[in-house]
Computed example of a mutant assay.
Amino acid sequence: MLAINRFSTDDPERFQKEAAPALEAFARCRGYLRGGVARAVDEPETWVLWTEWDNIGDYRRSLSSYDVKMSTPLLSQALPEAVGFETLVTCEPGSSSTVTTSDHSPDTIGRSDQP
């Protein structure tokens, strides 16, 4: 499961200083696999804080973590758009793609009350 928080900033130095502790807070949570902070190549004011998780439940529980809540000033500045993405097709270098099934049944997609 990928979580992608997108930001627009005119102060990249400040943003990087605030994003690093937020990423570290996520990294201490159960189910965290990896993450990073990246800047758009063609739009230097556009940044993302991305994280990868074992599952959506671990990501959602991480948002209740004290350390992550202390990062809320940064996270509250994220652009208002979808954050969580279910990985359904992957491909490793030199291999064929692998398709996985969704954790959601068709009638639960888009419902916020589902894990």
Results as ranks from 00 to 15, higher is better:
residue 47 W to Y: 14
residue 47 W to V: 00
residue 48 V to I: 15
residue 50 W to Y: 15
residue 50 W to L: 14
residue 50 W to A: 12
residue 50 W to Q: 10
residue 51 T to E: 00
residue 51 T to A: 08
residue 51 T to N: 08
residue 51 T to D: 00
residue 53 W to M: 00
residue 54 D to R: 12
residue 54 D to Q: 12
residue 55 N to T: 03
residue 55 N to S: 12
residue 56 I to T: 12
residue 56 I to A: 11
residue 57 G to C: 06
residue 57 G to T: 15
residue 57 G to D: 10
residue 58 D to T: 02
residue 58 D to I: 01
residue 59 Y to W: 11
residue 59 Y to K: 05
residue 60 R to I: 09
residue 61 R to I: 02
residue 61 R to Q: 10
residue 62 S to W: 01
residue 62 S to P: 04
residue 63 L to S: 08
residue 64 S to G: 10
residue 64 S to K: 13
residue 65 S to K: 00
residue 65 S to C: 07
residue 65 S to I: 05
residue 65 S to V: 03
residue 66 Y to F: 13
residue 66 Y to E: 12
residue 67 D to V: 02
residue 67 D to T: 04
residue 67 D to N: 09
residue 67 D to M: 10
residue 68 V to A: 06
residue 68 V to Y: 00
residue 69 K to S: 05
residue 69 K to Q: 15
residue 69 K to C: 09
residue 69 K to W: 05
residue 70 M to L: 08
residue 71 S to W: 07
residue 72 T to Q: 12
residue 72 T to F: 14
residue 73 P to N: 07
residue 74 L to W: 01
residue 74 L to Y: 00
residue 75 L to H: 08
residue 75 L to D: 01
residue 75 L to C: 04
residue 75 L to E: 01
residue 77 Q to P: 06
residue 77 Q to V: 07
residue 77 Q to G: 08
residue 78 A to L: 01
residue 78 A to I: 03
residue 78 A to G: 08
residue 78 A to S: 13
residue 79 L to H: 04
residue 79 L to Y: 00
residue 79 L to V: 02
residue 80 P to Y: 00
residue 81 E to I: 02
residue 82 A to S: 12
residue 82 A to M: 08
residue 83 V to Q: 03
residue 83 V to W: 04
residue 85 F to R: 04
residue 85 F to P: 04
residue 86 E to A: 06
residue 86 E to S: 08
residue 87 T to P: 06
residue 87 T to W: 07
residue 87 T to I: 14
residue 88 L to C: 06
residue 89 V to M: 09
residue 90 T to A: 11
residue 91 C to Y: 03
residue 91 C to I: 12
residue 91 C to R: 15
residue 91 C to N: 11
residue 91 C to D: 06
residue 93 P to I: 05
residue 94 G to I: 02
residue 95 S to T: 15
residue 95 S to H: 14
residue 95 S to I: 09
residue 96 S to F: 09
residue 97 S to M: 15
residue 98 T to L: 13
residue 99 V to Y: 09
residue 99 V to R: 14
residue 99 V to A: 14
residue 100 T to L: 10
residue 101 T to Q: 13
residue 101 T to H: 13
residue 104 H to N: 11
residue 104 H to V: 08
residue 104 H to I: 07
residue 105 S to T: 15
residue 105 S to W: 03
residue 106 P to R: 11
residue 107 D to A: 12
residue 107 D to R: 10
residue 107 D to F: 10
residue 108 T to F: 07
residue 108 T to D: 09
residue 108 T to I: 11
